[in-house]
Design a protein around this nucleic acid. Structure first.
Lengths: 361, 361
DNA sequence: GGCCAGTCTGTAAGCGCTTACCGGTAAGCG
DNA sequence: CGCTTACCGGTAAGCGCTTACAGACTGGCC
């Protein structure tokens, strides 16, 4: 790899020391507020720093300190192609990442973001390489097997989002099961619907499994017909949701009164497929989501869903990781509360408006 | 700062060398495909690496190589508060960042993301600190003054997005002026509207200035009344757009036939404010945006806008930065083409549907 | 069999920074 | 006035890695 040909090589601490007429140790001390340098020394160092535009090298600092002040975040990228049509799934992950980033900021950490293609080879190796550049890692849903996580955790502290609790790592998630139960109760008790289907997400996603569990438990508890099964298997994407509707209808099947989707994105695809066929939402079929992604309130009708404190999940993940970077204490599993957001797609009309909660005047 | 208390300290290259019975130089060579180690040596090293779960330390590597394989990206965060209500402006920036990240990946680089609060103190210092952890920086709109950018560029290569071209850095943007002219021409020629206002973005944003320029040039060229001025000053946000509508109407003013917004987000706020007052879009007032953020197609009516190749802008920014990290060649200014996206908010009805371009089956 | 060329491997220096340790100076005290 | 004490500042080691350089060994050839 060719060395960068900068006009003038970046100044080092030696240059600063030379210019200020002090030792490198003094420069370091001034820069880090260590010891108690004489006022005179201090100003001369500061001035030299200023004049040279000196910025300490992060790598050298990290090597010496054994602390890089960087955490890594890894998530899945939709497609391998470079310019796949914009992926709405951006939303959920990006909001979490924003939460991580803001929390990291407050501790003087930066965030190394890395996506992994769906069919990329040797993901564990890629992730290990990233781990080498960081002090700790946050993994999104379904990035690594439990065994691989355990192995990674021997190198750096690891926090997973929407994973399974693991003896080696901490997991941050929200109360998927409880959220789903509240939602189902609203549909059954407040609306009195008689049949509902669960359009699932990835079968191997812990979040999906928990939501499915909540769905089944609550329908059973209220004695209402719960429709599930392989036909109702989606994949968290809008396309997946639309495809399921197509299969059901083309197969001559009949739609239930309510379709409970594993996430907002799936609901978006379902609503699209329904409107294409002239089926009214919520008049003929009610639809609900899960997540409360920002776009949910702009759909027509606005989507009834379960709000996860998305950004806070990210922030919490960082906070926990941070505490584990300093020591190895802390909980194994953190569960954040959810909130039912009733809009119109469930059949309610009391929505406070399309823009409820946007903060627009 | 307390040192991390890991159960077992991460293995170093010495541990690997010891276990494999070779020197650290051999380990390094095997790991980097340098020289031609004997097959025997190679396998022993690889095995030791495997057994120890060794991952080379990025900081040490960077220090030795003078190459961190990390680029920094800095952008504005909406509010200082930790959990401001989700910010839709996420979208535009995040899509660009995704483009950067994917392109970086292909070169084995990772991306250090860092947001800066709107009213954060001493931004240049924060950015300089980040620069110390990277090989190059990409700055989003309005992050630093031209002078500050020049200073930063003495430390690392810098690429700006939507900034002004600068002798020290390269700028990547799209043809704002041309895009606006195409849009205005559509509104005036195809629809024959008689009056239109430009609801601007941040006054000091180069992108906004270019769009305003295109707007004025084209309306003048076609001899139609162009409404601008302080009342029509927005700030790229939905709230800003809504507020402008409020001011105009409350001030007893009359709305023009068309409101051309500086970006999609502003258009979203405008459409909201209009619908609140019972004003029909596009029947009474047509509205247009700029950017073609994913949510634009889900609005009611779907938003007519100008598409920027958002993700590609990010990728291009990285590619240019990458080439400058190796050498100091390259163009000063890159302009990407735009595309007019006609949906319904301008008054057209030929939209191919709410989900046009989503890739949903 | 002795020597040379050609391979591979090991030793050690150095990347830029932090910090333990020690020496020098000045102030405080008897 | 001499000694202790405190305080600063400098020297040097070391963080984990890459790589120039030199040494060791192999085989081939005369």
């Amino acid at each position: 790899m060719a060395t960068a040909k900068r006009v003038k090589a970046a100044p080092t601490i030696y240059d600063v020391a030379g210019r200020a007429g002090v030792s490198i140790a003094s420069v370091s001390r001034v820069l880090n507020d260590q010891g108690s340098p004489r006022a005179d020394t201090r100003t001369r160092v500061l001035q030299a720093v200023q004049e040279l535009g000196f910025v300490p090298d992060g790598a050298a600092r990290a090597l010496s300190n054994k602390l890089k002040k960087v955490v890594g975040v890894v998530f899945r990228r939709g497609a391998e192609v470079r310019f796949a049509d914009e992926d709405e799934s951006l939303l959920f992950i990006d909001v979490i990442n924003r939460g991580i980033e803001v929390a990291a900021q407050q501790r003087g950490f930066d965030v190394l973001m890395s996506s992994v293609g769906v069919n990329e080879a040797n993901v564990p190796a890629r992730i290990a390489a990233i781990a080498g550049k960081t002090d700790g890692m946050i993994l999104h849903d379904r990035m690594l097997s439990a065994a691989a996580i355990a192995r990674l955790a021997e190198t750096v502290p690891v926090v997973t989002l929407a994973g399974k609790p693991n003896r080696a790592s901490v997991n941050v998630g929200c109360d998927n099961e409880g959220g789903m139960r509240v939602l189902v109760r609203h549909l059954l008790v407040d609306h009195g619907y008689g049949s509902l289907a669960y359009l699932s997400g990835h079968a191997d996603s812990p979040d999906n499994m928990a939501r499915a569990r909540g769905f089944e438990a609550e329908t059973r508890a209220l004695g209402v017909e719960a429709i599930t099964g392989p036909i109702w298997q989606g994949n968290y994407s809008a396309g997946g949701g639309a495809k399921v509707i197509g299969s059901v209808l083309d197969g001559g099947g009949v739609l239930p009164r309510v379709i409970v989707c594993a996430n907002d994105q799936t609901a978006l695809g379902v609503m699209y497929a329904l409107s294409r066929r002239g089926i009214k939402v919520p008049g003929e079929v009610a639809v609900t989501g899960f997540d409360d992604v920002p776009v949910a309130r702009h759909l027509h009708p606005p989507l009834t869903t379960v709000r996860q404190p998305i950004q806070e999940m990210g922030a919490t993940a960082f906070d926990i990781l941070y505490s584990r970077i300093g020591a190895s204490a802390g909980a194994r599993h953190v569960v954040l509360p959810i909130e039912l957001i009733v809009r119109e797609s469930c059949g309610c009309t009391e929505s406070s408006g399309v823009f409820a909660g946007t903060g627009i005047a």
